[in-house]
Design a binder for these strands. Structure first.
Lengths: 204, 204
DNA sequence: ACAATATTTGACCTATTGGTCAATCTAAGC
DNA sequence: GCTTAGATTGACCAATAGGTCAAATATTGT
């Protein structure tokens, strides 16, 4: 889909720029980030950035669109033929795992949506919404069959997004409240969330 | 606590500035907001802003500290002597109501924490953490008495913050996914969350 | 080795932005 | 009315930031 970079140098530097930009944008937001910061983080000069990407905005949009694919993957894998509760718990685990392994992407997305999603509203109203419609229909059918508790499927998804992404987006708050300097809180979080959702979803 | 503004004009303009700044900062973040935007929104000139507040940063910090008080109030009101499940559900309702009535404050807070909470880390490690310690002890005692299901109290609070604030912070995403142009989704959300938390918390 | 092509950067340009300041205008007491 | 203190702003300044460009340097293919 994406045009293959020609040379090894282009491959390497484009990747270095995107990685540096993800680091910087996810921490400081679009307007809070400067080309100099990104160039510095990538170990390149500012004009050299512009040699690889025509503008700051193109870098940002590239990151957002790369991220969206990754972001939607776990929901795609929700299997209508699987065991309902285990499928949903598996989705929770996958989303939490993404918060652990890709917190920068999560914050990039959060920043974008907080500002009103000016650059990805189209994808949200298109791809995301279609996928949500598809998967909430599956969840609704599980409810209709009495396999899981009757909870609004869309709000159920919102709650999963919110609770799992919270550990990436509000990381500093979580760490500050839990104390125990910089420990990895994800095992705890996973145990909690799995238990929590199992209780809420198991039909009476 | 806060020095009373002397004249009526000062009272009115300071308030107009803070209100305009909340609007702008919550939408665009600190660096994404300009004094001109705020001045324009407040109906004042830029030098006039600086007449009332010495700098952009002071305006921002003033908003953050005003917001924190409001933000912690619902947790303060969690009553150790009340009915455990109803107390927690009441907290959920209050937090959701704050997302509805004060979405700008929620987004201001989210923006700040996303950027690493540079200006309110002190309050998070102090006031907030102390309050959380106090209230999670109460919740733990309810668990020990078998009044609610055994779920880690701190992560339970995180989940409440995440799910309720989601409706303010990710508002545009929620609206886009639910469709039905710009409707008020809060009644639905409240019904979902109350049902959801009641299921999860009711002991087996 | 050498031409052609790709990569890199110092210097520079322009627009924006936070903030200053002297001058003006307004409102309040007397 | 007039004085004084409070309120307002046009003009300006220095710093920053996105982006350009021509010149220099490195790489590649033959």
């Amino acid at each position: 889909m994406k045009p293959q970079r020609k040379t090894r140098i282009q491959q390497k530097n484009s990747q270095a720029i995107l990685d540096a930009a993800l680091e910087v944008f996810s921490r400081h937001g679009y307007r809070g980030s400067t080309l100099d910061q990104i160039a510095n983080e990538a170990g390149l000069s500012k004009p050299n950035l512009i040699y690889y990407f025509p503008s700051k905005e193109v870098i940002h949009v590239t990151l957002l669109s790369d991220m969206l694919e990754t972001w939607l993957a776990p929901l795609h894998s929700l299997d209508p033929a699987g065991d309902p509760i285990e499928e949903i718990l598996g989705y929770v685990r996958q989303k939490l795992e993404m918060s652990r392994s890709r917190p920068r992407e999560s914050r990039l997305f959060a920043n974008e949506v907080l500002q009103g999603a000016p650059r990805i509203m189209e994808a949200i109203k298109g791809e995301l919404r279609d996928l949500v419609d598809e998967k909430t229909a599956v969840i609704q059918s599980w409810i209709d069959e009495g396999k899981i508790a009757p909870l609004d499927p869309k709000h159920l998804l919102f709650s999963i997004w919110a609770t799992t992404q919270h550990y990436a987006d509000f990381d500093v708050q979580v760490s500050a409240v839990l104390g125990s300097g910089g420990n990895d809180h994800f095992p705890e979080a996973e145990a909690f969330l799995v238990d929590f959702y199992r209780r809420a979803l198991t039909p009476a």
